[in-house]
Design a protein around this nucleic acid. Structure first.
Lengths: 335, 335
DNA sequence: ATGAAAGCGCTAACAA
DNA sequence: TTGTTAGCGCTTTCAT
């Protein structure tokens, strides 16, 4: 039982024979301290093994150097890569990250934001496919700057970092349309979510239009975001007479691919697939899956960088950032 | 600019005409409050939109209801699944999670632990393949209970949750040995890490011994934990004359599999593969990869549950918990 | 360059 | 059942 109720700033001050203020100054790198006393203080800190108490500091300074990250699920590679980008730049700027999983449940999202607010985080990064009214209200009442990462919000009131989803899906769809397909299926999440209804679907329709193909809603499928969902939707896609598909999730893409190959069809010769998240899964399957390329790590990193500016009361040059996307042509499409 | 310097407990008390203590009591569910006054307080809280300041509370009570999680990389599915287990039970017990990525760098691990300590976390969950002396020292000086999740430490001084690695690898090796292989390769991370040298390799050797096969260190390979490493080590494995492999990482397994199939060999007929983490990747490839089955989510969940007890000064029935593992027979082995 | 003193918002004895 | 009173450990004017 080592009862080391660690030294406080008072102990240091007392030992050196200076005031709390002076110790506080050297700890915080304030230049207004004579070099000789600074040395003494530093020594005492060393000897006493003094570590500043961040909670006390937070209360006094009203800054916690902690930010909150609200995400659907750490287990999802797409989001965890964003999270990694966030964490890395957070560390650069000496912020810690309070992480919360919500499974995209608006109730939990609201609770998470409220909770982070009560923990006095200096800022919040929010990820999720949809932003319900209530969550949005909670966010704006949270008294901390917020930036969305890889997530869109209809009104554009919040800072955000994304790729141009409309354009990306349009390009993906056209890549496949160019190979002569007439019936290209699209699979997304719930179209009530802005990112699906307002962006992905719009991109898909734009591509159709540019190629004089009429939109047919029997080719639109919505699924959960996992492998089994892919397996299941695949047969419907085939039944609908599609010969190619543009999908939003990599696991779903692989599910579709495996199902279709099991039907004896060849990929990409008989059926083409293109997905959206470019996670490492796409290069580990055979064939490898063609995908929209997204700078996932950078989306997180840039979002965090923007947040540091916001927390610093700086003005953003641009608050709705769109990072460049690519098309990674691999084995599930004919190029 | 909404300058809403949110209401404090004082505002509530003042409005109702009671003392701070009374408000504090209702906020903390202390029963010693008359129902009528409790109602008034609750109303005032509602009207003022009062939210307790967790930082002030943390300073006064010396409990932050925050725990720290130190992990190699959120992006690694194995660890992120543990993290999910941790987060879920942390929420059940109303703890928040401060997350830090270390890439298994001892320097960053040490910094992370120190940082968490200064943020006054109530406990820490540590994940990583190795525990250097210095990190261990820092941990024990951190003045907060710690439990290791999916990580071993030679001396067994820390609480931990794992599977029985020796036994699991032994079973995996034997599963393949039973099919008549004489040269079974093993691939792990650095053998200087306890989990590799002391556990995995030991399990492998035990299996060999039980089957009267002599250990041959030209069949031992160490790699990084990613797909490309698998691709690269595969050719060495083949060159060493192995006809089967037991590996520690699923991506590495898939890399090996893809390389070997590209050489025109059939799996599992010509070469068998068995991996250890049973991440969802193993079911998305064709063939699916046989793996040791680990209750990853539970490892995290149980570790967090233990931590809640420790933080509560309860005694653990068992401090080195080993959860049951299985063998998930799939397509890369002949069953 | 240094110190004194007033909080930050809350909890926790201790009284009443 | 309720209130009073010290702090928790630190930052931050304001003096000096």
């Amino acid at each position: 039982m080592k009862k080391k109720s660690s030294a406080t700033i008072y102990d240091v001050a007392h030992r050196v024979g200076v005031s709390l203020a002076t110790v506080s100054r050297v700890v915080n790198g304030n230049s207004n301290v004579r070099d000789s006393t600074k040395q003494k203080v530093l020594e005492a800190i060393e000897e006493l093994g003094y570590h500043p108490n961040a909670v006390a500091r937070g209360l006094a300074s009203k800054k916690t150097t902690t930010i909150g990250v609200v995400m659907p699920d750490v287990t999802d590679v797409y989001y965890s890569e964003l999270a990694r980008g966030i964490d890395d730049v957070a560390n650069m700027y000496h912020y810690d990250v309070l992480l919360t999983n919500t499974d995209e449940d608006p109730v939990r999202e609201t609770m998470a934001v409220n909770n982070l607010a009560s923990k006095q985080v200096d800022g919040i990064i929010f990820m999720g496919n949809d932003l319900e009214r209530e969550v949005l209200n909670t966010i704006s009442s949270a008294n901390a700057p917020v930036v969305l990462a890889g997530s869109v919000e209809g009104e554009g009131r919040l800072a955000s970092v994304n790729i141009d989803y409309i354009e990306a899906v349009k390009e993906a769809t056209e890549a496949v349309l160019k190979n002569g397909h007439k019936r290209v299926a699209i699979v997304t999440g719930p179209i009530t979510h802005a990112i699906n209804g307002l962006y992905r679907l719009a991109g898909y329709k734009k591509a159709l239009e540019a190629n004089q193909i009429e939109y047919d809603d029997t080719l639109l499928f919505t699924t959960h975001q996992d492998y089994n969902a892919g397996l299941q939707v695949a047969q419907k896609i085939l039944a609908a007479g599609a010969t190619a598909v543009v999908t939003y999730d990599d696991e779903v893409a692989v599910g579709i691919m495996n199902y279709i190959r099991d039907q004896g069809k060849r990929i990409p010769e008989d059926f083409e697939i293109i997905t959206s998240n470019d996670t490492k899964l796409t290069i580990m399957t055979r064939p490898q899956v063609t995908s929209i390329g997204q700078p996932k790590y950078d989306i997180g990193a840039v979002a965090m960088r923007m947040l540091t500016k916001l927390m610093n009361n700086e003005v953003l040059d641009e608050s709705q950032v769109k990072l460049p996307h690519t098309l990674e042509r691999r084995g599930t499409t004919i190029n």
